[in-house]
Simulated assay, not measured.
Amino acid sequence: MEAELFKELEDMDRAAVCELVNECNLADHTNYDSDLDGDFYYIVRNDDKEESGLDSELFAVLSGYFLGETVEGKKVIEVEAFTHPSMRGIGFFSMCYNSLRDDFRDVKIKFMIKKPLTGSDCAAYERICFESDDESEPDGYFPESDLHGGSDTDDFLCKGDFHDESGDQTFRLKAPVPFVAPDTYETLRSIGAVHLYDELLMEKVLEHPISDPGDDLCNKYGEVHLTGYDKETLYLYGLLVYDKYLGKGHGKALMKAVENYEKPGKYKKILLQVSSNNVIALNLYEGLGYVETERIVYMMV
């Protein structure tokens, strides 16, 4: 058994990949696009269904994308990886990853991991049960709000053993990454991956529907650019305040001008994307009432 490399997928293989991604979405409460559009794919087939006891055509798939960017002088490949929920922990991800490393030796690999959707009942994604080495420290749960970067809690959490809620598994984490399942985190840490940043999709329901302002609201202080995303949603794809006007509230003013656009229309919501590293923009959007609807975690090796 091996991971086969394909530059393009035949119809039958594409259908099998869609089925596998949908199985993972159902098990993990995620919403990955099942119609993968990679530049290449590694596939591990289920060639003996009687022996495996699994009806699925595939055990695992790894999809890679050439981003056209470099880090430390090396090209970057973005990767999505999926292993059938019934076949995890027995090496199929490693099979795909090792094949990728053999074929693309001098590259940086950037893993994309989606946060489970709101309503997931899997506590492991949102909190980690911590068993302290220090008897003076009580055992207990640390909610996700305590796990964000830069807090004293992070330094404390790095020092102990973590276990799942059932107590069946104990593992050591070098740095907590919110929203990544512990088994996924451990797998990526074992190959040397580190947490880079998160991309957040945020959304706000408007007080009244508006039409698409396009680029009409750009002014001498900065620019704001939107386009239709779906029949009810505008997507904000650009907000820029010119350097000499930074820190004077013009970003907020541009956003308020969009939300209060005088021409009525069909758009009831605004959707935007922001990096967790862009603290100023993130604080602006949160202050205006934008709510996180989706989060993508990036780790790199």
Rank of each mutant, 00 (worst) to 15 (best):
Y285K: 03
K268V: 09
V258E: 04
M300G: 04
T293Y: 06
V291I: 15
R295Y: 13
L288A: 01
Q273A: 14
V258K: 03
G249P: 03
L288P: 02
E259A: 10
G289C: 04
V297P: 04
I296N: 06
G251A: 09
Q273L: 13
V279R: 03
Y285E: 00
V279Y: 00
M300F: 11
L288M: 11
Y290S: 07
G287T: 02
I270A: 10
Y298D: 02
L288V: 01
Y298C: 04
V258I: 14
M299C: 15
L271I: 09
P264Y: 04
K256V: 14
A257N: 14
T293F: 05
P264K: 10
G247I: 00
E294P: 04
K269R: 15
S275E: 11
G249L: 08
V258L: 15
N283H: 06
V279N: 00
Y298E: 10
Y285T: 01
L284W: 02
S275P: 07
I270D: 03
E294N: 14
N277P: 05
E294Q: 15
G287W: 04
G247P: 00
M299L: 15
H250C: 10
V291Y: 09
G247F: 04
V274W: 07
L272A: 01
Y267K: 07
E294K: 14
G265V: 06
G289R: 01
G289H: 01
G247N: 03
N260C: 13
P264S: 14
S275C: 07
L254T: 04
G251V: 08
Y267G: 07
S276Q: 08
A281T: 05
Y261G: 03
I296M: 11
G287V: 02
A257S: 15
N278Y: 07
K268D: 10
I280A: 14
Y261S: 07
A253H: 04
L284A: 00
Y261T: 02
H250Y: 15
M255T: 05
V274N: 08
